[in-house]
């Protein structure tokens, strides 16, 4: 009986989902952001606070990080179009803890993304106190050595502003970014420039926003070899079920600061 009820519940739920969701099919987007041109050599940042703890290794400006073969790290790509449904696989990570650590007096990772419903955990693995100031989130916790700060992210906080800056006022060179979104459809390119957004609703034209901390909105790119303008970093695409390979996306060097 219970089994029957449960299975019929599932069947009903599946039916409901199928009818509510315009996308019964899902696609995965992959691609790689590439710095088009010769990447500037990252500057060394001035380190003058807590030198014995913070300035053992030099700090470099992380605003433009390019790998050996040109891959551009920390490019954010997120879905701008409102979607009613997300793929059931995302339920597994819906209440995850998402970490940003104060490590050797820098934010690790440099750019982090968190979805409403998840919990942001800012920790401090250094032997000195840090504060992590995110004005747009209304938080600025003072995190003592080896301590941490946790906050569950609300829908209201995931209001869709371009990534929020995270700073430590005690150590002025420290800078990071936090992307807070109402849905999990976003990616941050890795050290080689690669990104993947899994299980995006297929079949409908969607709009994505591409952002990087140095230029802000990424407006000038070469996509499949063709020069393309993305006003306010906006890219339209209709996702096909299955694989959607964007290949190398060459970001014009002129837009960088």
């Amino acid at each position: 009986m219970t089994v029957f009820l449960r299975s019929s519940c599932f069947a009903l739920l599946a039916l409901f989902l199928a009818s509510a969701a315009s996308a019964a099919e899902w696609g995965t987007i992959t691609g790689r952001f590439v710095f088009d041109g010769t990447a500037p050599k990252p500057k060394q940042l001035k380190c003058d606070k807590d030198p014995a703890i913070c300035c053992v290794k030099p700090h470099i400006d992380e605003s433009i990080l390019v790998s050996k073969d040109g891959g551009l790290a920390n490019v954010i790509i997120y879905l701008r179009t409102k979607v009613a449904d997300v793929h059931p696989d995302y339920a597994k990570t819906a209440s995850d803890k998402v970490a940003m650590d104060n490590h050797e007096c820098k934010f690790v990772p440099h750019v982090q993304g968190v979805v409403a419903g998840q919990t942001l955990v800012v920790s401090n693995s250094d032997k000195t106190g840090h504060n992590s100031n995110v004005q747009l989130l209304g938080i600025n916790p003072l995190i003592s050595a080896q301590g941490k700060f946790e906050q569950k992210i609300t829908e209201d906080q995931a209001s869709g502003v371009v990534p929020m800056e995270v700073t430590c006022n005690i150590h002025p060179w420290m800078k990071g970014y936090l992307l807070v979104r109402p849905n999990p459809y976003f990616a941050i390119s890795d050290a080689e420039g690669n990104f993947t957004i899994k299980n995006v609703p297929a079949g409908k034209e969607l709009e994505f926003v591409v952002w990087q901390e140095s230029p802000g909105w990424v407006t000038d790119v070469k996509l499949a070899g063709k020069a393309t303008k993305w006003a306010k970093g906006r890219m339209k695409m209709t996702v096909k079920p299955g694989e959607n390979k964007l290949g190398d996306i060459l970001v014009a060097s002129k837009i960088f600061k």
């Binding site: 100031n133 209304g138 938080i139 600025n140 003072l142 995190i143 003592s144 941490k148 700060f149």
Partner: peptide, 14 residues
């Protein structure tokens, strides 16, 4: 609020 002055997150170590 609006300034560098932070809120105390934790003053007690495990």
């Amino acid at each position: 609020n609006g300034t560098p002055m932070p809120a105390i997150a934790n003053l007690v170590a495990d």
